[in-house]
Amino acid sequence: MGVPIRRAGADDRDAVVGLLHRAFSADAVSRWVFPDPDRMERDHGILMGAFFDMALEAGYVDLAEDGSAVALWQSLPAGGHGPEDEDGPAAFRESIDPANGRIEQIARLTGAAHPTERAHEYLSMIAVDPALHGKGLGSELLGNALARCDREGLHAYLEATSSRSRALYERFGFTFMGQAIQLPDGPVMLPMWREPAQ
């Protein structure tokens, strides 16, 4: 397909956050975090902005040149979380919606499941404009980043949030790590790992 892809910067924040909000506002995990429609409309974009900021700080953001798709990656070292990160989920909740304990809860659950043994690239989010689903844009973004992982010998990790996304990630060499993350009274997230291709 050959979609032109570039690295996004701080100037792209509003456009990327808008795309993430549109793409994930109907997602089961986002709906679990924000079950109230008014809170979803008010605070979901703030959460998406926080993910964008983390990716810029600890990794990179791949953006389709026309703004139709985006992937947020973080480059994480081996060794896991240090003592300074123990209060991270609570601080994360405070920065987005202090009254919403589910923000902290999901951060703790995903953090506990996150592998720490080896350095890796973490795909925290990938989104395609809902009007353009099924056109291969997500596959283009994913393939572009994973080709770099293969060249540089980098492992990769993500959490699939649906059987459809799991099937896509499996086509790109990710495997389910065996233990799902069950959100209380909510959907399941599937931790997946990928070894670099030889």
Rank of each mutant, 00 (worst) to 15 (best):
M1R: 13
R6E: 06
R6S: 08
A8F: 04
D14A: 14
L19N: 01
L20W: 00
V29L: 03
V29I: 10
V29H: 01
R31C: 03
R31F: 03
F34R: 00
P35E: 00
R39A: 12
M40A: 14
E41I: 04
R42T: 07
D43C: 08
H44M: 11
I46Y: 05
G49L: 04
F51L: 13
M54D: 15
E57I: 11
G59C: 07
V61Q: 05
D62C: 06
D62G: 12
L63C: 12
E65H: 10
S68G: 15
A71V: 12
L72M: 08
W73L: 10
W73E: 05
Q74R: 13
P77R: 13
G80D: 03
E84V: 15
E84H: 11
D87G: 15
G88P: 14
A90L: 15
A91I: 08
E94W: 07
D97G: 08
A99C: 13
G101I: 03
E104T: 04
I106N: 00
L109E: 09
L109H: 06
L109Y: 05
T110F: 02
T110R: 07
A112Q: 10
H114L: 11
P115E: 02
E117K: 12
A119R: 09
A119Q: 06
I126R: 01
I126G: 08
A127G: 12
L132W: 03
G134P: 06
G136V: 05
G138S: 11
L142W: 01
N144G: 15
N144R: 13
L154P: 09
L154C: 13
A156Q: 00
E159Q: 06
S163G: 13
S163V: 14
S163H: 14
F172M: 09
F172C: 05
G173H: 02
A180I: 06
I181W: 02
P184Q: 05
D185Q: 04
R194D: 02
E195F: 03
P196V: 03
Q198P: 15
Q198M: 13
Q198Y: 10
